[in-house]
């Protein structure tokens, strides 16, 4: 009896949610984009293993600026810095670095870490490696 009384609210909740859920448990639900970057740039998750930095060119999509797998970002109003791995499980030693200049839309890179560390001060970017943000930790209230 106790088991049945617990199952009834569960079933009601299931009924309320489920028609849409089961009919639509599909690829689209897992994709997201983070548009809290300057300019028309967005980070887009196509799958757990494919995350790219895109330039959004219209309401219906965009072009890839830094290909997958974009693992970490830093940005201010003028620049977006990105770390890219060949794939999400690749070691840190495989990382290449990119610099996107927002105003001109120029993309510099791929750089090694040494090249990147030399280039950043040349462009007068107020960046330190402690400032990297993992794409997994992008703030939810940004858009």
């Amino acid at each position: 009896m106790k088991q049945r009384s617990k199952s009834v609210p569960h079933l009601i909740l299931s009924l309320a949610l489920l028609p849409v859920v089961l009919l639509s448990a599909c690829a689209g639900a897992g994709d997201w984009s983070f548009s809290g970057l300057p300019g028309d740039y967005e980070v887009v998750r196509f799958s757990a293993h494919v995350i790219r930095l895109l330039e959004r060119t219209s309401d219906i999509g965009g072009t890839t600026v830094v290909d997958s797998f974009v693992s970490e970002l830093w940005w201010n109003d003028d620049y977006i810095l990105a770390k890219r791995k060949p794939e999400d499980t690749a070691p840190e030693s495989s990382v290449s670095y990119y610099i996107v200049e927002v105003a001109t839309k120029e993309v510099f890179g791929p750089y090694t870490k040494e090249e990147f560390d030399a280039r950043v001060p040349e462009l007068d970017i107020p960046f330190s490696h402690e400032g990297w943000i993992s794409v997994r930790d992008l703030p939810q209230d940004s858009s």
């Binding site: 599909c26 690829a27 897992g30 997201w32 548009s35 998750r45 939810q140 858009s143």
Partner: peptide
Amino acid sequence: IDTFNFDPKFFKQ
């Protein structure tokens, strides 16, 4: 090309 899967972190929907 797409991948059907779900992600533990999800927002802006």
